[in-house]
């Protein structure tokens, strides 16, 4: 299937507290596997997905580790809202996914408006 629409995955939720972060990642990987590779924007609490995590004691799979599948599926740039990072007192250096380039965005509104479809997670 040819890529006919540009798709943005808008990831607004932290891992573990609800399933949206994990189910959002699964949807992104599924789109990429169907040659509909979306761009990914981590914004609001979604930026917490990029922290190092140790969820073994709460019986969860490590979402941060699973994010490392993204570059292998062709999602090589992760867009991150700069304001969301700063509001949460995070340092951009704390945010990383091996194999992916982190690009901080200042104007998320203009960025979002460029896409045909936005899937919110």
């Amino acid at each position: 299937m040819p890529q006919s629409k540009s798709i943005l995955a808008l990831c607004r939720h932290a891992p573990y507290g609800n399933t949206l972060a994990r189910e959002g990642l699964e949807a992104v990987l599924a789109c990429a596997a169907m040659d509909q590779t979306p761009e990914v924007l981590l914004i609001n609490d979604g930026v917490f997905q990029l922290l190092q995590q140790n969820p073994e004691q709460i019986g969860e799979k490590n979402l941060h580790r699973n994010l490392q599948a993204l570059p292998m599926f062709g999602v090589e740039i992760l867009y991150v809202c700069r304001k969301s990072v700063e509001q949460r007192g995070l340092c951009p250096d704390d945010l990383c996914v091996p194999g992916a380039e982190i690009t901080l965005l200042d104007d998320t509104g203009t960025f979002i408006g460029k896409f045909d479809q936005v899937l919110s997670f």
Binding site: M1, S4, K5, I7, A27, A30, C31, A33, Q117, L119
Partner: peptide, 20 residues
């Protein structure tokens, strides 16, 4: 069906509306 159905629907539809 699998998540591929969401990808396919996003690719062929004019509009996608999410109900949170």
């Amino acid at each position: 069906a699998g998540l591929g159905q969401l990808a396919e629907a996003s690719a062929v539809s004019d509009r996608v509306v999410t109900f949170g």
